[in-house]
Design a binder for these strands. Structure first.
Lengths: 234, 234
DNA sequence: ACAAAAGTGTTCGTCTTACACCCATGT
DNA sequence: ACATGGGTGTAAGACGAACACTTTTGT
């Protein structure tokens, strides 16, 4: 039978635990959804692929830890990060009991990122990612579900696309996230109905002879819509 | 500048933390959404209202800890519990740094619950709950958002209603969760379209002279629908 | 002139919403 | 007989899904 441990006096007699964060880092290159993974350079499981993680320090909260980890790996600041789940199985890592709070990040690959070489990190096609250590596969599966939910709730492109993008880019992004194909006409009119994009008069000439118009997000309108609680359903 | 703490060798040099669980316990009495709160019987904030919580032991994961806490308070087993967020602000409690993983529970108040008297717990109308200690108000706000999301994704009545219930009960429950009123005819036909209820030939005579039919959930159909990924939108 | 991608509207069916009257029964 | 809550259907509008042709321009 289990010894009772409830919130009572004498805090200090209770056990303490290692707590880490692990980041599921999503990117988009215009065609495919990507995930940034690191190759472990220490035992156990040295050489295998894993999420980028780090322990939480005494002087930071978990959001700060996740930002720090991400910044150490990519040099980026102010990245979109969202807490997901906390994994607490006793034997989830073999070395010691370590709880882990997962975070997912959305980053725009085009911001030329200087990946810290110390961590042997690599972008993988999401659909073609390697098997990961420990429970990291589960974390990734949970994260993509959240990403999809988030994408139905708000147009997520802000974070994953460059400042200017074509309608095709945006459609490719949604198709990559949901692993589905959409009709171009329906997609366009749904996006236009949202009324959060601004059509610039520049064209991207790289993909066709005709060229396709570039759009930007109207951040103000977008934030207004969010605060009014709109839902974006593809 | 911050000292780097990343996942590397020498796990044991990293700091450890207190980690607790806190339970947001929802109930439904047929009319109103309820929340079960406990009055602290120790300092700090002795006498004030809070969520029921407890520290995570070395030999249990957080789900088990949440179940234990809930069981200690109510004597109930196998309650629907779902992990929510993890709160890690350094000063979220004044005594020591304690991280807390929140869980929400759905319980059917009619199962005559023997609340452990040691904890001076009390059911409050959700809309009329007292101010809570620390960041527990935030936890509750986050929890009700999740409850609403969950309720749009699956008919949640299983957990919050007694085995047999009237259509009115179910409507009252959804109205309580969303704090909105629905049209009786539309509600009924939407529920019927879901095809997960079984109409018994018993009536509840307590609410009217005519009496109203009692329903049960068809658990098999319900699980089948869930696995097919249906969405229940009110 | 042709190849290759961009851009654009309409129709049909389904779902959502608004709305009001009769029913069964106990008193 | 009447008061109380229970139970039911329909019409109008909004929304989602399916679908194909014209435009532009570089080669």
């Amino acid at each position: 039978m289990h010894k009772f441990i409830l919130m009572e006096e004498n805090y200090l007699t209770y056990p303490k635990h290692f707590v880490a964060v692990d980041c599921i880092i999503f990117g988009f290159d215009g065609d495919d959804l990507k995930i940034l993974l690191v190759q472990r350079n220490f035992e156990p499981k040295k050489g295998e692929w894993s999420l980028m993680g780090g322990f939480i320090d005494d002087k930071e909260n978990s959001d700060q830890a996740a930002n720090r980890v991400l910044n150490t790996l990519t040099g980026l600041e102010n990245i979109y990060l969202e807490q997901l789940n906390t994994y607490t199985e006793i034997d989830r890592e073999p070395t010691a009991r370590i709880m882990s709070i997962s975070y997912y990040a959305l980053i725009n690959i085009q911001d030329n990122i200087q990946i810290n070489e110390k961590y042997s990190a690599k972008w993988f096609d999401f659909k073609d990612r390697p098997d990961l250590i420990f429970d990291h596969n589960v974390m990734v599966k949970d994260a993509v579900l959240r990403l999809r939910r988030r994408a139905t709730t708000r147009p997520i492109g802000f974070e994953l696309l460059p400042e200017k993008f074509t309608m095709k880019d945006l459609q490719n992004l949604y198709e990559a996230i949901f692993d589905e194909k959409y009709d171009k006409r329906n997609f366009t009119s749904k996006i236009n109905a949202l009324d959060v994009l601004v059509k610039t008069n520049e064209k991207d000439m790289s993909s066709s002879k005709k060229g396709s118009f570039l759009y930007t997000f109207d951040e103000e309108k977008y934030n207004k819509k969010i605060s009014e609680g709109f839902m974006f359903k593809i």
